[in-house]
């Protein structure tokens, strides 16, 4: 089964401690995603019916007056009324609270073009899940985010997960600051 680490196939995740936000305006899709996540064993699922609702729920769970069970991962549809997925991710990545700006996010999109995947990446999403969604693809994306946390990059025009998936040789000037005084361990919780 490709939905987990092959070396540890026998062991299952304890997803009952996990809280996932689904921001999806299409009720059928929101129900379907919820149902699958429940089957995977996710303990708490919060559904937001549009972008504004998603922001409100993120603010109340992970914001200044955050709950004791903050949202661990957000699945965000691109096309939503009252603030779309790109506006939601912009709000998340520009928030002052670490529990929000470093929040792992997966963009859900009906668009399959390269431009959409690039837009998702450049706006700070961790992963992209293209509709139609299959159970295996959903599990893979979630497990990938859990097993492969990416460093975050703060550049003049970007803040989000490192967009480089692999290290390539680079002979130019090193402009990335990685000294210990500049490394901040994220997630205050």
């Amino acid at each position: 089964m490709s939905t987990g680490n092959n070396n540890r196939q026998k062991k299952s995740y304890s997803l009952h401690q996990f809280t996932i936000l689904i921001a999806e305006d299409f009720p059928f899709m929101a129900d379907l995603l919820s149902s699958m996540l429940r089957e995977f064993g996710v303990g708490r699922i919060i559904v937001a019916e549009n972008g504004r609702d998603a922001i409100s729920r993120l603010r109340s769970s992970n914001g200044d007056s955050g709950s004791r069970e903050p949202i661990d991962l957000a699945l965000i549809d691109w096309l939503m009324p009252k603030q779309n997925g790109m506006e939601v991710i912009s709000w998340i990545r520009s928030h002052k609270r670490d529990s929000l700006r470093f929040l792992p996010t997966i963009l859900i999109s009906a668009y399959t073009s390269e431009a959409v995947v690039e837009a998702g990446r450049d706006n700070g999403f961790n992963e992209v899940l293209v509709k139609p969604v299959s159970a295996e693809k959903l599990a893979q994306r979630i497990l990938y985010v859990i097993d492969n946390p990416r460093p975050f990059v703060k550049a003049p025009n970007f803040f989000g997960p490192d967009r480089r998936r692999k290290d390539l040789d680079y002979s130019g000037e090193e402009r990335r600051v990685t000294q210990s005084e500049h490394i901040k361990v994220n997630h205050e919780r």
Binding site: G4, Y13, P149, P151, A155
Partner: peptide
């Protein structure tokens, strides 16, 4: 032009463990 890197954390893995669905 300075770029800051924030180390990746295994916070989710610490919470849910590892394995497979």
């Amino acid at each position: 032009t300075r770029v800051n890197i924030y180390k990746a954390t295994k916070i989710l893995q610490a919470k849910v463990g590892s394995g497979a669905v």
